[in-house]
């Protein structure tokens, strides 16, 4: 069983701080696991594994969703918010703004749960912090 499949099975039965997890594996050359955290299904967390890291990513918005002419202001705000956001960091992947957290592939399951929930909460908090710059 691959590590992502193992994680899927564990998450199906897990609960953390009252949250449940709905998993959907996305096959491909780089397998990804989509996780919906209960109550916050709108911003799923995507987990993918590299040789050494478990990357947890929340895709927030496309750059086209930013109000015209305010991209620089948004980027500045993202940088300023980067340190205060606990455990997660801003990122831009292709044209998507995202929030992500990186864990060791040897992380304890409890830490993975904590990361997923923190990232999901952070995603919403981060969006609220830049909402005025979005269309």
């Amino acid at each position: 069983m691959s590590p992502l499949q193992e994680l899927t099975l564990k998450l199906a039965d897990a609960s953390y701080e009252g949250r449940r997890f709905n998993c959907l594996p996305i096959p491909g050359s780089q397998p990804v696991l989509q996780i919906e955290v209960s109550g916050q299904e709108e911003f799923p967390i995507y987990i993918t594994l590299t040789d050494t890291q478990m990357l947890c990513i929340a895709y927030l918005f496309h750059e086209d969703e930013v109000i015209a002419g305010r991209h620089a202001e948004l980027n500045e705000r993202c940088l300023q918010l980067n340190v205060p956001i606990p455990l997660s960091a801003w990122a831009k992947i292709e044209h998507q703004y995202a929030l992500f957290g990186a864990l060791s592939t040897h992380s304890l399951f409890d830490n993975v749960l904590r990361e997923i929930v923190a990232l999901s909460d952070n995603a919403i908090a981060a969006l609220e912090a830049v909402e005025d710059l979005l269309k």
């Binding site: 990804v32 989509q34 799923p44 969703e65």
Partner: peptide, 28 residues
């Protein structure tokens, strides 16, 4: 490379299921 491939897989999956076509503001 992994992140790019993962992002491609995610966007293809979203497009295939027509899910989450909302903007961030609508989802929020």
């Amino acid at each position: 490379d992994s992140v790019q491939k993962a992002t491609l897989a995610v966007s293809e999956n979203i497009a295939a299921n027509h899910s989450n076509l909302n903007t961030a503001r609508q989802s929020l």
